[in-house]
């Protein structure tokens, strides 16, 4: 194994069903329901998935949902904004913990 990630491994995702078909089927049924058109459109859900994919830094998800966004009719501008949303939340999550830092400093300082 020369690298942990191979693009062709994405196509083997369903192999996860081989270890426990029941759990895999439940997951896939839930997954399909989540991405079905409902209060949010399939296009909007794909954009959210793209943002989350960047937040969790999953290369498989980034590959799959970049293509999915295009196939739902989104454009690069919209997809870039979705990535910035992920970036802002990740950055904000770090920054807001600065309040903890300030609390500690405040407690320890004269």
């Amino acid at each position: 194994m020369d690298t942990y990630y191979h693009p062709h491994d994405l196509g083997k995702f369903a192999d996860m069903g081989k270890g426990n078909k029941n759990l895999w089927d439940k997951f896939m049924s839930y997954y399909s329901a989540v991405f079905a058109e409902a209060a949010l459109t399939e296009r909007e859900k794909a954009l959210i998935a793209l943002g989350v994919a960047h937040a969790v830094q999953c290369p498989y998800c980034i590959d799959a949902y970049s293509q999915a966004c295009l196939e739902k009719g989104s454009n690069t501008e919209e997809m870039t904004e979705a990535v910035h949303v992920a970036c802002a939340i990740r950055g904000g999550a770090s920054l807001v913990h600065g309040v903890q830092m300030r609390n500690v400093v405040e407690k320890l300082s004269m």
């Binding site: 058109e37 399939e42 296009r43 293509q67 295009l70 196939e71 739902k72 009719g73």
Partner: peptide, 8 residues
């Protein structure tokens, strides 16, 4: 890539 659904 493939096209989106026609209606959407």
């Amino acid at each position: 890539f493939l096209p989106p659904t026609q209606e959407a």
